[in-house]
């Protein structure tokens, strides 16, 4: 990075540190913060969409749909996220390739499962094995987002399901009295009002989601914890120009500060959002009423 970095052994400590902190490996570490933030930014709305879908399914009057929605919520919520991540990504990836295989290679005559191997035709591979590395990484990132979204979708479905039921019945009855259809009531009355009930639960989920990001490495995405471990471990002079002892404590301390700051910022933002959502809604009074037990 800096010009004086050519021979780290001769440097005084300040310059040494400057050089050390700007190695390519550290650049990867810094970039991974961006990766984690980007993942959170994409996962949150996706998980919310999954949650919305799940909650709507669970509310459905068609029993197979409602049964499916409830099963999704119950099953995925019941499993620790680590256990889910450890096998689900591979399964998801194989499912995609299997579908593509059926569509793209109908003439294929060999079995897909050959012993332990999962073999699909080359055209069905995701991404194609000839694709450049960045495509593979983007795909890996996408699968990670999807897995996170499925897991946290189940939790948010649970929250939204509760929130939909928390909207005072009177509001819906009034809408029906005005001649709105069930559909209209749902979209025009229920959905706009439910957020204020859902927000505390969703905020909490967001906090849990932030703290689940260290599991990203299980999904094949090199996250901040992976790099902190990699950089903090004892560095032997045979393999690096910047040898040092076991510095994991310092790196984890940096992560701790990052997570605490991120949590604080989120808290402040969510508090503002809550105030905004409550403002102007007929529910400010309704909330207090609901708190008193029974709408």
């Amino acid at each position: 990075m800096f010009e004086f970095c050519t021979d780290p052994e001769t440097l005084d400590s300040a310059r040494w540190l400057a050089c050390y902190l700007t190695t390519g490996k550290h650049a990867n570490f810094y970039i991974s913060f961006g990766t984690v933030l980007l993942l959170l930014a994409i996962t949150a709305p996706t998980a919310l969409a999954f949650g919305f879908g799940g909650a709507m399914a669970a509310r459905s009057r068609v029993w197979p749909v409602s049964w499916l929605g409830k099963a999704y919520i119950a099953l995925v919520r019941g499993v620790p996220d680590i256990a889910f991540f450890l096998f689900f990504v591979i399964a998801l990836d194989q499912a995609f390739e299997w579908v593509r295989h059926q569509v793209l290679c109908p003439d294929w005559d060999q079995p897909i499962r050959q012993g332990n191997d999962f073999v699909v035709c080359a055209a069905a591979k995701l991404p194609l094995s000839s694709a450049p590395q960045w495509v593979h990484e983007v795909y890996g990132f996408f699968v990670a987002v999807l897995t996170f979204a499925i897991v946290f979708g189940a939790f948010s479905a649970n929250v939204l399901f509760g929130a939909m039921r928390a909207v005072p019945r009177a509001q819906l009855e009034t809408a029906e009295a005005y001649g709105m259809s069930r559909r209209q009531t749902f979209w025009r009355i229920l959905v706009p009002q439910m957020w204020v009930y859902a927000l505390p639960g969703l905020s909490n989920l967001w906090m849990v989601l932030i703290k689940a990001t260290p599991l990203l490495f299980l999904l094949g995405v090199e996250d901040i914890v992976y790099w902190a471990r990699e950089l903090g471990g004892t560095a032997n002079p045979r393999f690096t120009a910047y040898p040092h002892g076991d510095w994991r404590t310092w790196y984890f301390l940096a992560l701790l500060v990052f997570y605490l700051l991120f949590t604080r910022v989120s808290e402040i933002f969510l508090e503002r959002l809550m105030r905004k959502l409550t403002h102007g809604q007929a529910t400010t009074g309704g909330m207090a009423q609901a708190k008193r037990g029974g709408a």
Partner: peptide, 10 residues
């Protein structure tokens, strides 16, 4: 704040 704000593994 500290215990809610940091991942369990840290």
């Amino acid at each position: 704040f500290v215990f809610r704000g940091s991942p369990l593994f840290i």
